[in-house]
Design a protein around this nucleic acid. Structure first.
Ligand SMILES: [Zn+2]
Ligand SMILES: [Zn+2]
Ligand SMILES: [Zn+2]
Ligand SMILES: [Zn+2]
Lengths: 447, 447
DNA sequence: TAAAGAGGTCACGAGGTCAT
DNA sequence: ATGACCTCGTGACCTCTTTA
């Protein structure tokens, strides 16, 4: 094997790869850099590669001299613009040049030389500082001639785009919900202009668009004008439970519809999507209840009405003490009070909860395949939520509110745990499992 | 040229060489190892080859004994940055890399990948020295991909303070709670949600001094060598309750002594100080229990001993089921496990809880006069605590720990609520209110 | 004590700004 | 449209600490 390794080819040309694969002899090795397992490599292959590497690193050491020479040439030459003869400010776009040539090239490098017309017509105008650098065509031509490289110019996001976005979305700044109005009355005379500016600082345009879309999506999937009715069959225990589960099934479908329109969710593999839905749906049901709660005629209302009576009867069916009922009602009411039924806040809580791992602390909950991705998504939304709250009020208020929401999350946890047990008990004892939709079987973790 | 380098062929087969030379396309490079001049190579070619070889040496080192391989790769094939192919200066943040990649990572490691936008939009820009390492997003992504670890970045100043601090508090250096051992096995590269960016960096000198003083204060006020004894009179109900309250009174005095030495507390007006103590003392009692818990002879111990028997008898006196007893014991044990009885962590939890408003959700709790100030103090200590945890471990672990502590806080809440009811019931039914110290009357909210 | 690997420094050269 | 002047990310080079 000694002294025979002659050539290294690096290629991404598929045809060539096939050709070589077909004709390769015993003293040829092929390494696929995209194949991170490299099952095909033998120890001999590796030795050969190492040998090649050693030889190559020797080659490598020779070309450093070249770059050194270039460095020297960069430092020693006087400060004269190679393009126009003006005083140079340094190397710009790889050519020693003055400030004006730098700015000129930056602005015009991406114009087509052919489309520019020479002032004199013969494409050989002099470009000299103080005398003549008016001809656009010849000046740009000379920039390229002296070696200016347009690939050194990396265009950053132009502010024009931002402005455009902003104008389009100015209308939507109105959606800043009611809580803000209350705060405005309390606090002071914050001017609208100031508000907008602070808004711009912490939330990017894209983030505002994301938020707006989320809100639209949440409202359209969650709004339910009939949610105040307690439409559960309460003739007997079995039909009540089944009716209850059917209702839950429909609500679960709403949530699933919602998440299927979240890109990050759809980007996950199907197993993880299933696990997230299965284990995290129950604690978010009260969010739906909260959003559609109406103080007057809702079945969770504190004022007695037809619906509340039906709701009470439901629990009486099961000989339950009123503990569970009260816990549920109080939870939804607290949620209503805390969020003021603000769609955006509820939406954020919903997303952040569903992208949690081990929310209900079920021992049997499997570990996600791409736990990292889910974590990243949750982090992103938490951060977005935080920024949203900071924008809505200020940092201190946001912090306070965040802590209160955390409190609420733990109440959601424990309550849904209790409710899960309630449903499980009354189901398994009655052997009605078969009639439950697969979706709810999965959510309740019975099989 | 982007993302396409796929294959390396090493051959000494002359025919094949000719064939390839004849058909090679623009994205194929041929290197003749026997040609020591390599006139045909441009600098770009060489950079690309370096990068390819770096990837190769990476592949090369995957299957053997890792530590051994790593040592070899450290010595034999240095000089090549795994990230961009430039000349490497050594291992930086756990990856063989060049000076610029090192500096780049140091500056940008704590940015969120999700927030960065790829220049081309498809998140797969090549990162190659001399050709293209302009895309911020993809460069950072590649740093992480090649294994750079952001938890290796610690500000020097912080390091020194930490070291100094640890030297002075040798007792606590060994402490790493058990759950962290489990957490270590998790993925190390999870991006963290940063509640606040300012929190990330360092603890200032003043903050370290504050922390040190707090720890000293906490230990001196809370340490109690007789805490393992269940020194409650258990001859009959009345004397048991009174004895219990006397004991609680003494403990409450400890807490009050503690807070009288906290400047922020003394700075509040007397009404607010009173309210905070009155409504928040009960949930922090287990902190005192936890700090003084000893597994061997403590009355809360799981091993039966003289003290545990007395403790059981206490509850038998009141015909209580063992629920309350078990809840209390479990709470303290969990707290012990979670905090490992670390004085500093318990101290922070204590302070943050006491500076809460509405902790026990008593409807009758009055609103603080200077609610804003209390909030500000709490925020300050939460931030300080967060910083402390981040310094102690890293962000990821701090975050996980924080969430677990929050969970614990809610358990403290509910348990103390239950305990309050227990005491209230047994007191009012016996009309022994007059004999209770005014302090405990206030804490239990009976008058 | 020397090598390795942390963090820090500052001239340099990108892109942006605004009176002209 | 121009160019003097601005800000800020970059990377070669530096110092400091740890360790074998
Ligand atoms: Zn010039
Ligand atoms: Zn011309
Ligand atoms: Zn590099
Ligand atoms: Zn990119």
């Amino acid at each position: 094997m000694s002294g025979q390794t002659k050539m290294i080819f690096i290629t991404s040309d598929e045809d060539l790869v096939h050709k070589i694969s077909a004709t390769k002899s015993t003293n040829t090795r092929i390494i696929d850099l995209d194949d991170h397992e490299q099952m095909s490599l033998t120890i001999n292959d590796k030795n050969m590669i190492n040998l090649a590497l050693a030889e190559l690193s020797e080659l490598n050491s020779t070309d450093h001299n070249q770059s050194k020479e270039k460095e020297i040439s960069k430092k020693s030459i006087d400060l004269i613009c190679k393009i126009c003869g003006d005083r140079a400010i340094g190397f710009n776009y790889d050519v020693l040049s003055c400030a004006s040539c730098k700015a000129f090239f930056r602005r015009n490098a991406y114009q087509q030389l052919e489309e520019l017309k020479c002032l004199t017509g013969n494409n050989e105008c002099l470009v000299i500082h103080g005398i003549n650098r008016k001809c656009h065509r010849c000046r740009l031509s000379r920039c390229f001639m002296m070696g200016m490289r347009k690939d050194f110019i990396v265009k950053k996001e132009t502010k024009q785009k931002k402005k455009k976005y902003l104008e389009e979305n100015l209308l939507n700044t109105n959606f800043i919900p009611q809580l803000l109005l209350d705060l405005d009355n309390d606090n002071n005379n914050i001017e609208l202009n100031e508000m907008e500016e602070t808004v711009l600082d912490t939330l990017s345009t894209e983030e505002w668009i994301t938020i707006e879309n989320l809100q639209r999506l949440f409202i359209s999937t969650m709004q339910d004008d009939n949610a105040h009715k307690f439409s559960i069959n309460i003739t007997d225990r079995d039909s009540a439970i089944m009716s209850c589960l059917n209702y839950a099934d429909q609500t679960a479908l709403r949530f699933i519809n919602f998440f299927r329109q979240i890109n990050e969710f759809e980007g996950l593999n199907s197993d993880d999507r299933f696990i997230l839905m299965k284990y995290n749906l129950l604690p978010v049901f009260p969010i739906y209840k909260c959003f559609n709660y109406k103080p007057d005629n809702h079945y969770l209302s504190s004022k007695e009405n037809e619906e509340t009576r039906r709701f009470d009867q439901f629990f009486m069916l099961f000989d339950e003490t009123y503990d569970l009922r009260d816990t549920l009602v109080k939870l939804v009411i607290s949620l209503v009070q805390l969020t003021n039924q603000d769609a955006m806040i509820l939406c954020f809580v919903l997303i952040i909860l569903v992208f949690s791992q081990g929310l209900l602390m079920n021992e049997e909950e499997p570990i996600l395949k791409d736990s990292l991705a889910v974590n990243r998504i949750q982090s992103y939304y938490i951060k977005l939520f935080w920024n949203y709250l900071v924008n809505k009020w200020d940092e201190q208020q946001a912090c306070k509110y965040f802590i209160q929401l955390l409190n609420m999350v733990f109440r959601l946890q424990s309550t849904s745990k209790i409710f899960q047990n309630f449903l499980r008990n009354h189901l398994t004892s009655r052997n009605s499992v078969d009639q439950i939709t697969p979706l709810m079987q999965s959510v309740l973790n019975i099989s």
